[in-house]
Design a protein around this nucleic acid. Structure first.
Lengths: 67, 67
DNA sequence: GTCATAATGATCTACAGAAGATCAAATATA
DNA sequence: TATATTTGATCTTCTGTAGATCATTATGAC
């Protein structure tokens, strides 16, 4: 399983979904899906923007989960 | 830019595109696009299978490139 | 060298899911 | 309470991968 730590990273910074959508320009629905881990694919653009915005590496946002 | 190190990782193990396709069950076209970095999005399933197959973390396969 | 096999690149259709928008419900704030 | 904001759910549109196929190139056997 791929684990997406967006909710954790956002929580640490006390960011709301609407904040991230507003600040990055990424569609709110897309962020919602990643936040709730219902997304099954991701655009590289989105991945990049989120990492830059959150100041993290891809490996901190997405992790291989042993399940 | 998102940099995909699939070609490097495969090169280190002397793996062919057809090998990876055969061994993982991932469509050859999909691997070809990641290999040549023409893909603009990726399924989490594919990401996971490639990492497991290559024995690497997501951060080793995908990297944030400062361009 | 020739021939056969494998690997690769290119291209097509079909399909799945994100993008984008909208609506209603829930939450926060004055 | 009333208003504004945030969020979840849902819909249509659109993009790009999945999967297949064909042509070309590379590899290896003879």
């Amino acid at each position: 399983m791929i684990k997406c730590h967006l909710s954790k990273l956002m929580g640490e910074k006390k960011l709301k979904i609407s904040d991230v959508a507003k600040d990055t320009g990424i569609n709110r629905g897309t962020i919602t899906r990643l936040y709730h881990e219902t997304a099954v694919r991701v655009e590289f653009d989105v991945l990049e923007q989120l990492c830059v915005y959150l100041g993290c590496e891809i490996g901190e946002l997405l992790e291989l989960d042993v399940d």
